[in-house]
Amino acid sequence: MSSSTGIERLIDLMAKLPGLGPRSARRAVLHLIRKRAVLLGPLAEAMAEVAATARECLNCGNVGTSDICDICKDPSRANAELCVVEDVADLWAMERAQVFKGRYHVLGGTLSALDAVGPEELRIPRLIDRVGEEEISEVILALNATIDGQTTAHYIADQLDSRVRLTSLAQGVPIGGELDYLDDGTITAALRARKEI
C-alpha cells in the first residue's frame, strides 16, 4: 500500500476506468511507476495533450482534436455515402473493418421514450441538414440490432423519406457463428434475410 497521496489519487482515478477495479488500478499504477521513463511520462504528456485538444467534430460528432475531424476533411471520402452510427465506438468498429470509404454521422445515442431521449437530444436534425448540404446519395443506417436501434432507424427513415437511398446493415449469422449457439431472434432474422446461392 502506497503512503503517497498523489499515487493514491491516481489509483482512485484509474479505478474509475471501464474494466479496471481498485486492485487492477493499483497494479497498473505500480507498473507505470516502474516504467516511469518509457510509459508514465509519455502517457502523462499524451493525456495532457488530448485533454487540451479533444473535441467533437462539429460536422459528424466523431471525436478528434480539431473542430472538423480527419474523416470529414478527407476529400477522398466525399463519395456521397453517409454511414449513420449510434456512438463513436461504432464508428471506430467500422473503421477497423476498413470496408467503408465514405463519411460518418454519429447520433450520440438512440431514441428512448422512457429515458426522455428525443430527436433533439440526438444529432438527427444535423443529419437531415447534411443530407441536403453534402449531396448525399445513400444513407447507410448502421445502427445496433436492438429495439431502440431499429426504432431510431425507422424514425430517421421517416424523416428522410424519399430524399435519398436508405439502406441498413444485414442481420443474421455472424462469421464463425454456429446455429446451435444462436438465439432464436438471430435465427429468425437470418432466415428472413436468406439469399440465393
Binding site: T146, Q150, H154, G185, R192
Partner: peptide
Amino acid sequence: SRAAVAMGDRLALA
C-alpha cells in the same frame, strides 16, 4: 424473442 419479428416491420416495432 419478439425482437426479430418486430424489427423487420415498422408498424410492429412501433
